[in-house]
Simulated scan of single mutants.
Amino acid sequence: MDKLSPTWFAETMGFLTGYLDPNNPQPDVQKKFAESGIIQPQDGLFMVGSREGITQVCGRDAAFSSEEAIRIGNIRPQIPMHLDPPEHAKYRKLLDHLFSPKQMTGVEDEIVNRANSLIDAFQDRGECNFTNEFAEPYPGMIFLDLMGLPQSDRLTLQSMVDAIFHPGEGVTTDIDEIARIQNEGGQRVYDYFEQVIADRRKKPSDDVVSGFLEVEVDDRPLTTEEMLDMCFTLLVGGLDTVKATLTAFMAFLGRNPSYRDQLVADPTTIPQATEEMLRWETPTTLFIRRSTANQEVLGCPVKEGQMVILNNAAANLDPDVFPDPMTVDFSRKPNRHIAFGAGVHRCLGSHLARRELNVAMQEWHRRIPNWSLKPGTNLSSMLPIRNIDNLELIW
């Protein structure tokens, strides 16, 4: 297959930001996929928005690749996210145990402490910028704890992730400049973790990076490049997605206070409410695959080399899977949403993310039950991750 243009991802996200409505996504995608589970918004670019179609593309033996689908500052495929089976499984196995439900139970007390330390700083003030004062630092602090990194590095790492996911946002729409910002942010990630790996070789510790030095793949130690590519994946997956999800949750609850009141009245409903808000909001909306053969998806011909966008937000409204999908129901069971992706590339950190989201909803509504959106708050967001930049709350 031909190599993708270095600016392909930036150009495509620019197009999709205009094509899709990130601020009113549910009725938008419902309308776009009303006639078919696969559409062609641009020549050579397909978008799949039904569960059946996404299952076809993400199946273990599907003729679609992740390896060259995304370039967001990474100079090699991210491990394991951008590797295809069977290569993918070797690395995924190394990482799965680090983020297993059992491991996450072991760090829950620390997650609770992190949430409360942030709330302590502004509870008495009666207002906060939720994005900047809670949603952003909260997952970053937990990531640093797990990786054994100093909390003083959080803003440095966040600036790298911002360059990767939000390059030039509000400043420039020039595609070459956006690609430059992403590449620079990606290089900073590699440089940072190369030093961390070198430090751990000299002085191992009880953390994830030190653990990389002790494991093997194909009966050999991991190379420095492999460790860097896994660190890249963990960083970009561990910070911005939870941040965006928290802002989406609170914006929804602020606009729909009767749902907020359900969480306050009965905190035991929070885990189910979290699943339903993940289904409804799906902040990480789009995933990308590249066809490796001439084939069909839902009866639509897709040629080798063509790109397919997986719209998981649309699939989470599929009436064949979810009865009354346009109604938010905190008691919905079962709730087989795919907010964390589908197939073998399903989000590695989903158990951690769920723990973070549940704890945040629990501790926030325990301590600040009667809050609301500050009048005039801008709730707009962009793709590919629907983060709300300045979510102002009052109580």
Rank of each mutant, 00 (worst) to 15 (best):
D2A: 07
D2C: 00
W8L: 10
G14E: 07
G14N: 13
T17D: 14
G18A: 03
G18K: 10
D21Y: 04
P22Q: 04
P27M: 02
A34T: 11
E35A: 15
G37N: 07
D43A: 14
D43S: 12
D43V: 12
M47A: 09
G49K: 05
R51N: 14
E52Q: 15
G59H: 10
R60K: 14
A63V: 11
S65Y: 06
S66M: 13
E87I: 02
T105N: 13
D109M: 13
D109F: 10
E110G: 15
I111F: 03
V112H: 13
R114Q: 13
A115C: 15
N116G: 11
C128I: 08
N129G: 05
N129Y: 05
A135Y: 06
I142C: 02
F143S: 01
S152K: 14
S152P: 00
L157I: 04
Q158L: 14
Q158C: 08
S159Y: 07
S159L: 04
M160K: 06
D162N: 12
H166T: 10
G170D: 11
T173C: 05
I175C: 02
E177A: 12
E177S: 13
N183A: 13
G186H: 11
Q187P: 04
E194C: 09
V196Y: 03
I197Y: 04
R200V: 03
R200S: 03
R201E: 11
D206L: 10
V209P: 01
V217T: 06
L222A: 03
T223M: 04
E226P: 00
G238S: 05
L239D: 00
V242I: 13
L246V: 07
A248H: 01
L253G: 04
Q262Y: 02
L263D: 05
A265Y: 05
P267Q: 10
P267G: 12
I270Q: 11
A273T: 06
W280N: 06
E281A: 12
P283K: 04
L286A: 07
I288Q: 10
T292R: 12
N294D: 15
Q295F: 01
P301C: 11
Q306A: 06
Q306Y: 02
M307C: 10
V308A: 01
I309S: 07
A313Q: 15
F330A: 04
R336C: 04
R336I: 01
I338N: 02
I338E: 02
A339S: 11
G341D: 01
C347G: 03
L352M: 07
A353G: 03
A353Y: 03
E356D: 03
L357W: 04
V359S: 06
Q362M: 11
P369F: 08
W371L: 11
L373I: 08
T377G: 03
S381N: 06
N387I: 07
I388S: 00
D389K: 14
N390C: 10
L391D: 01
I394K: 08
